[in-house]
Nucleic acid binder design. Structure first.
Length: 643
DNA sequence: ATAGGGTTAG
């Protein structure tokens, strides 16, 4: 084997096993000590093939007097890994061991700065900046560009701009880096000014503006950029789809996706994940299934992110079996996102035990759970009432995986105790947290008080909340609910008056249902139209039958104010999820599952009604509320009345 | 240059 042949073969290696083979051939022929070949070999392992950085490092450590290319390659490999700090250690090593053979060059600093940016260390970044100055490389175009990005990532846009202003002849990449840094810093005006001043804009710059606006929540501006672009490439289309999906414009996502197909273009994997993510959020099961068909037909099942989004989509559309199937049949190694998506899905459906089992499977497969994985597992425990197991997971996270619990994990733990009625324990847990509790923590506790009717604790907690976030309407409603359960109507009235006085409005509940691939939205107490009339008529018929055959009596204890019982019953009757179900019963043929998505948590009365409908009408109803699923069948719900 | 998983509440 000669050098040429070896490089050719290396290019075709896609797995570590194949590299092992070449490695063996090199040893046999003596080519192994050829620095050029060796450099290419470790480049291939540390950058091109996944999961083989360790292999590259081991080879590197045994190579006598590595040259600058080899050092750069290892630094680069670490910079994109889970432990970017190792890039810096390698650099220190390089300075100490072999300054004669390998002086750092512009590549060295570009990769090092990328590493510092990746773990957000401004201190390291600044030190590297100094080192680059010492070596006379700070003025290099590539180094300058990575300096701009690094300072942007570390939240110091003013430094980014200083570096940019001092550049002699910034190219388009440097301009783009400056724009990105400004977006990171949330300075939209500077972005616009830079964009206007750019002497040359290729489509990358336009795409950057589009994505930047989208991340800042400026959909309107993103749309404007998209429409003004003369050349729309693949990235432009996928960025636009993602922009709309990230900002809740689901109808438009489907529209743009259809436009793309109508123009005869082939959607790429990023567009597909965007569309599937929109389906997931909107609960558009039928549409999602059609997209899945397209994914299979066009060979996208080979892309891991597409499969991950499919798992998420099926979970959030209420079809756990399909989600499980996608996970099981994935042709590639499951990533941390695949496992976590499935875990979150199980959590939402109240399958706590299965979630814990799946966590074990994940660990056995060799993927280490991260902080988000544990949020999902803890969430699964709290929503299934698995106190012991939740406690164990929390312990394991800290002591086995050395993950420092963050505010989200503490939130799950408070929820775990609070939801189960252990209010004292939950309160004590909050008091001894090592980080200051935020509004979400207190709100979790207030929610628990409202579930279990603890007036005293609720009042205490509400006071903490009033200091942190006094205008949250949900908190006022929760407190008034606690009073209502306890029959303290005077206090209910006081809360209600203070809400009116402070102009705090309740958020209106809405529910959506998909019929023939069209999403219909119902809002409680909204003006009547043909669709709502149809729903109301059907609902009247249903409620009558439930009273006669199901023994239904309205549950009215938790309504906001002290009004006459009949009136209370009336306002409960109009909840949007009831209208959506009625509409589904009227339009869908018998035997079809009725799927509903709601923006708030389902109320107790609606929960009872759904159970009764599933029994009296022998139909299956799936409701996705703000945080989890309820699967009604034969008169009972999958949440076992724990939610 | 674009993507995929996460706590509470009305």
């Amino acid at each position: 084997m000669n050098q040429q042949r070896c490089l050719y073969l290396l290019n075709y290696c896609k797995t570590l096993k194949a590299v092992n083979h070449i490695h063996a051939c090199l040893l046999k022929t003596g080519l192994f000590s050829d620095p050029f070949i060796f450099g290419k070999l470790i480049l291939h392992c540390s950058v091109t093939i996944s999961d083989s950085l360790d292999y590259a490092t081991r080879l590197f450590l045994h190579y006598p007097n590595p040259d600058v290319f080899m050092y750069n390659t290892i630094i680069r490999g670490f910079s994109e890994s889970q432990r970017p700090q190792n890039s810096i250690t390698t650099y220190i090593e390089m300075r100490r061991e072999s300054s004669l053979f390998a002086a750092p060059d512009s590549f060295t600093f570009a990769f090092l700065l990328k590493a510092a940016a990746n773990y957000g260390s401004l201190r390291t970044g600044k030190q590297l900046h100094c080192q680059a100055l010492v070596h006379g490389l700070a003025g290099h175009l590539f180094v300058g560009t990575t300096l701009i990005s690094m300072y942007g990532e570390c939240g110091r846009v003013e430094f980014s701009m200083k570096v940019f202003d001092e550049m002699r002849e910034p190219n388009v990449v440097a301009w783009n880096a400056a724009v990105s840094a400004c977006f990171r810093g949330g300075d939209l005006e500077s972005c616009e000014r830079l964009f206007d001043r750019m002497p040359f804009k290729d489509s990358t710059s336009w795409n950057l503006m589009l994505a930047g606006y989208a991340k800042a929540g400026e959909v309107e501006m993103a749309r404007k950029v998209f429409s003004e672009m003369e050349v729309k490439d693949d990235v432009s289309w996928s960025s636009m789809i993602t922009a709309l999906a990230q900002n809740g414009c689901f109808d438009e996502v489907f529209g743009v996706f259809m436009d793309l197909r109508r123009l005869g273009m082939r959607p790429n994997e990023v567009s597909l994940t965007g569309v599937l993510s929109a389906c997931a959020q909107a609960g558009a099961f039928e549409f999602g299934r059609v997209v899945h068909g397209f994914v299979e037909k066009s060979g996208f099942s080979w892309i891991i992110s597409v499969n991950n989004t499919l798992i998420d989509m099926y979970s959030k559309c209420g079809n756990l079996d399909m989600a499980r199937l996608v996970l099981k049949k994935m042709p590639q190694k499951k990533s941390i996102v695949s496992w976590t998506s499935m875990l979150a899905g199980l959590a939402m459906h109240g399958h706590g035990e299965e979630a814990i089992q799946l966590l074990h499977e994940m660990e056995e497969s060799g993927i280490k759970p991260d902080r988000i994985t544990f949020i999902s597992v803890l969430y699964a425990c709290s929503h299934a009432g698995l106190i012991e197991q939740g406690h164990e997971c929390f312990w394991k996270m800290k002591n086995v995986y050395n993950i420092e619990p963050s505010i989200e994990h503490y939130g799950c733990m408070v929820d775990l105790y609070g939801r189960a009625g252990e209010l004292r324990k939950a309160y004590e847990f909050v008091c001894q947290m090592p980080i200051p509790p935020n509004d979400i923590i207190w709100r979790t506790l207030l929610g628990a008080c409202s579930m279990h009717g603890n007036v005293e604790l609720a009042e205490q907690v509400k006071e903490r909340l009033s200091e942190l976030d006094p205008t949250d309407s949900g908190d006022h409603v929760l407190l008034s609910n606690v009073y209502a359960i306890a029959g303290k109507w005077n206090n209910v009235e006081t809360v209600r008056r203070s809400m009116t006085y402070q102009r705090i409005k309740k958020i209106a509940g809405w529910s959506m249902i998909e019929v023939d691939k069209i999403m219909y939205t119902f809002v409680a107490g909204e003006k009547q139209n043909d669709i709502t009339k149809e729903a109301y008529n059907k609902l009247r018929e249903i409620m009558l039958r439930l009273r006669v055959e199901g023994g239904y009596v309205a549950e009215v204890g938790r309504v906001l104010h002290d009004i006459e019982d009949e009136e209370k019953e009336d306002s409960v009757t109009k909840h949007s999820e009831k209208l959506a179900v009625a509409f589904g019963m009227a339009r869908l043929c018998k035997g079809r599952v009725i799927r509903i998505v709601k923006n708030l948590r389902i109320c107790r009365d609606c929960h009872t009604v759904m159970k009764l409908i599933s029994k009296v009408y022998e139909s299956e109803i799936v409701v996705r509320d703000r945080s989890r699923f309820h699967n009604f069948k034969d008169g009972s719900c999958s949440c076992r009345n724990y939610w």
